[in-house]
């Protein structure tokens, strides 16, 4: 049994994003015309309004912008304390994720973290959740 997590928000583009995670691939849409990466997934490029795009596998590294630690429980699947981090991916988009193999006290502004995977499931099915840990981990 994969780890239960709060339910994903689903639309045709999110569905494709999560489908890639089953093969542990973190892919974001890149505009085929102006090359802007976008997140969350959606139908058009916000820079040029093109609807041509490719799902690009990204490098999977980003720099820490901010984080917060929940001391109150909101989801039964994430009892407190639970920490969430926001990274600026090398490709440009900001990405909300969970820091792993590092304590919140060790997080630093601008620190580079790298992609890891952990399992997940909700009523929509099983998937893998992209999370981030130290470079030398």
């Amino acid at each position: 049994m994969a780890t239960a997590r709060p339910v994903r928000a689903m639309d045709p583009y999110a569905e494709q994003f999560w489908a890639f995670t089953q093969a542990r691939e973190l892919r974001l849409q890149q505009c085929a015309d102006c090359r802007k990466f976008r997140w969350p997934p959606g139908p058009t490029c916000d820079r040029c309004l093109s609807d041509n795009f490719d799902w690009r596998r990204i490098r999977g590294t980003g720099k820490v912008l901010s984080w917060t630690t929940f001391h109150r429980g909101y989801f039964p699947e994430y009892p407190p304390p639970h920490t969430v981090v926001v990274l600026e991916l090398d490709e440009g988009p900001l990405f909300v994720s969970v820091p792993v193999e590092i304590s919140p006290r060790e997080l630093r502004e601008g620190m580079t973290l790298a992609l890891r995977w952990t399992d997940g499931q909700d009523r929509l099915g099983e998937y893998n959740l992209p999370v981030f840990g130290p470079m030398n981990g």
Partner: peptide, 16 residues
């Protein structure tokens, strides 16, 4: 949108 990562609440967004 970020519920799968345990991110929720307007308070947490302002905490960030």
């Amino acid at each position: 949108y970020y519920a799968p990562w345990g991110m929720t609440s307007q308070g947490a967004l302002y905490a960030l």
